[in-house]
């Protein structure tokens, strides 16, 4: 269930607002940021693909022209008919190639330019990525999540572990995916923490945490839902940050740290559970004595 919600959220992040005219106009009044419509472009071609798919689409102004012009138009039309790689695929292939350059060039535009050169596309394409500063990090997060889900589905020993061990194993699997980029990961974190990127990165993390609970076999939807996710989010993030300064071989210290944090959380859960029982017992005792008191008052 969470996965479908998560996917919907993911696709929702590409939706666009529609009140551009108003925004643009407001630009004149607030002489603030460059008189523009902020960053809400109007996607056109992607929303009504029928415009291009119908290659037979008659061209309105081509009637009277010499024969060689019409053959040129014929060629052009054929070119339009040719099944073209979707923009999203092209973007993904550029970004995938860019990941190879992250270690030397960082998570910014330079790596994406280098990546575009690798796949033989003009680096100009980078300028067309929506929110291009964060594009690479967000792409990496999505890729990791996908790989993570595939890994969970294929890993069978996970089911044999107790919940606390399973959780720390899952967090470890995910964090190991970003281990190769550890020297540049602080930059990625700072990009994600930037106010304009925070909503997306928060969403991506929420999805990840959700996926971990899902894999742990937790299907509950009570009030604990929030507590569980908050606690796990905390564990994940602190471990992620611990990892940045960990110089032990194979991040041994990080995994020990992670195990301890998960243990703490489960202890805390136990403590809370005990406190709850105690409170219930006390409440029950108080209640019955209060009941007795009231009954006595009314009897007299």
């Amino acid at each position: 269930m969470y996965r479908t919600i998560a996917r919907r959220l993911l696709s929702g992040s590409t939706l666009n607002g529609s009140d551009y005219t108003l925004r643009g106009f407001r630009g004149t009044v607030t002489a603030g940021s460059r008189f523009t419509t902020s960053t809400i472009p109007q996607p056109l071609s992607d929303q009504n693909p029928k415009q291009h798919v119908e290659g037979v689409n008659p061209q309105p102004n081509s009637s009277a022209s010499s024969s060689n012009q019409s053959t040129a138009e014929e060629a052009l039309r054929r070119e339009r008919q040719r099944p073209r790689t979707e923009y999203q695929e092209e973007q993904a292939s550029v970004l995938r190639a860019s990941l190879r350059h992250v270690l030397s060039l960082g998570w910014g535009e330079e790596a994406m330019i280098a990546g575009a050169r690798d796949v033989g596309v003009s680096p100009s394409i980078v300028g067309s990525f929506p929110r291009k500063d964060a594009a690479l990090v967000e792409f990496f997060m999505d890729e990791c999540l996908q790989k993570f889900i595939d890994r969970i589905d294929s890993e069978e020993e996970l089911q044999n572990l107790v919940p606390s061990k399973r959780i720390s194993k899952l967090v470890r699997i995910r964090l190991e995916m970003q281990a190769p980029y550890i020297s540049k990961w602080p930059q990625a974190l700072s990009i994600q923490a930037h106010p304009s990127n925070a909503p997306t990165s928060f969403k991506q993390r929420a999805m990840l945490v959700d996926e971990i609970w899902h894999a742990t076999g937790d299907e509950g939807a009570d009030i604990d839902w929030y507590v569980k996710r908050t606690v796990l989010g905390g564990i994940y993030s602190t471990t992620e940050i611990y990892m940045l300064t960990d110089s032990s071989a194979d991040f041994r210290d990080t995994w020990a740290f992670l195990d301890n944090r998960v243990k703490d959380a489960f202890d805390l859960k136990k403590t809370i559970q005990e406190a709850k029982y105690l409170a219930e017992a006390v409440g029950a005792g108080m209640g019955s004595s209060l009941q007795g008191f009231v009954r006595r008052v009314f009897r007299e």
Binding site: G24, F25, Q42, L44
Partner: peptide
Amino acid sequence: RKVEYENLVG
């Protein structure tokens, strides 16, 4: 592909 436009000053 990916044709977009942005209005400036309304």
